[in-house]
C-alpha cells in the first residue's frame, strides 16, 4: 500500500498548489460567513495574496515567464490597490462597522457546500483533459466563483456585494491559472484594467448612492419593480 501511495503521490509544488487552493476555498467560505465589512476586505486581500503565491508557484514550476507578470498584476491590484481603495472608501463613507443581520449564515453555508459539490462535478471532465500542474484545482476555482456569486446574492449592503464581485474575479484568475497557465498577456492586462476602472466607477457610484440615500443599504434600491 505504501509503495503505491508513494507512486501516486504528486510532486511537492503540486501539493503546495493544492494546499493553497484549499486555503482559498476556505477563505471563500469565511467571506461568506463574515459579517463585518472591514474583516471582509482583509479576507479579500489575503485571498489575493494566496492567489499571488499560487500563481508564482505555478510560474516557477513550469517556467512560464508571463505568469510572473500575472502574479505581479494580482499582487499590485488585488492585494495592494483594491483593498486600499476599499479601506479608504469605507473610512470616507463611514460604514466600517456595518454589520449585516439579514442573512442566515448556516443556510448560506449549506447552499455553499452544494455549490462546491456542483462545481467539482463540473470541473471533472475539464480537468481530466488538462495537462497542467494545477489541474485538480479547477474545481476549487469554479467553487470560488460560485461562492462569490452566492455572497453577492445574499448580501444587502453595497460594499460586500462589490467584494463578492472582486472575489469572483479572483476565482476566474485562479481558474485561468489552473486550467491553462493563465490567459494571454494582453487579455490579462485588459481584464486588470477593466477591474480597476470598475472599482473607480464604483467608488464614484458609492458616493452617489450615499449622497442620495444616506446609507449603502441596497434594500433602498428595490423600488423599481414590475407592477
Amino acid at each position: 500500500m505504501s509503495s503505491t501511495q508513494a507512486l501516486l503521490a504528486p510532486s511537492l509544488p503540486s501539493q503546495l498548489i493544492n494546499l493553497l487552493a484549499a486555503v482559498m476555498l476556505l477563505i471563500a467560505f469565511a467571506m461568506l460567513a463574515q459579517r463585518r465589512v472591514l474583516t471582509l476586505i482583509n479576507l479579500f486581500a489575503v485571498q489575493g495574496l494566496i492567489l499571488t503565491a499560487s500563481t508564482l508557484l505555478v510560474a516557477w514550476t513550469t517556467s512560464q515567464p508571463h505568469l510572473y507578470w500575472s502574479a505581479l498584476i494580482t499582487l499590485v491590484l488585488k492585494v495592494l490597490v483594491l483593498p486600499l481603495i476599499l479601506h479608504r472608501l469605507i473610512r470616507k463613507l463611514n460604514v466600517k462597522w456595518d454589520v449585516e443581520t439579514l442573512i442566515k449564515i448556516p443556510t448560506t453555508m449549506i447552499v455553499g457546500i452544494v455549490l462546491v459539490i456542483l462545481s467539482f462535478n463540473l470541473a471533472l471532465p475539464i480537468s481530466a483533459l488538462s495537462g497542467t500542474v494545477a489541474r485538480g484545482t479547477l474545481g476549487i476555482a469554479i467553487a470560488i466563483v460560485l461562492l462569490a456569486f452566492l455572497m453577492m446574492i445574499t448580501r444587502s449592503k453595497a460594499v460586500p456585494q462589490v467584494i463578492g464581485f472582486l472575489a469572483m474575479e479572483n476565482g476566474l484568475f485562479f481558474a485561468a491559472t489552473s486550467a491553462t497557465y493563465g490567459m494571454p498577456m494582453v487579455v490579462e492586462l485588459g481584464i486588470a484594467l477593466d477591474v480597476l476602472i470598475g472599482m473607480v466607477i464604483l467608488g464614484v457610484f458609492f458616493f452617489q448612492i450615499r449622497e442620495r440615500f444616506d446609507s449603502l443599504d441596497i434594500r433602498h434600491l428595490e423600488k423599481l419593480k414590475e407592477d
Partner: peptide, 23 residues
C-alpha cells in the same frame, strides 16, 4: 441610481461568466 447599480451588478456578474467561458 438603482437602475445603474442593478445594471452594473447584473452585467458584471454575467460578464464574469462570459470570462469563464472564454477561459
Amino acid at each position: 441610481l438603482e437602475a445603474a447599480w442593478k445594471y452594473f451588478i447584473l452585467c458584471g456578474v454575467g460578464i464574469a461568466q462570459a470570462l469563464f467561458g472564454t477561459i
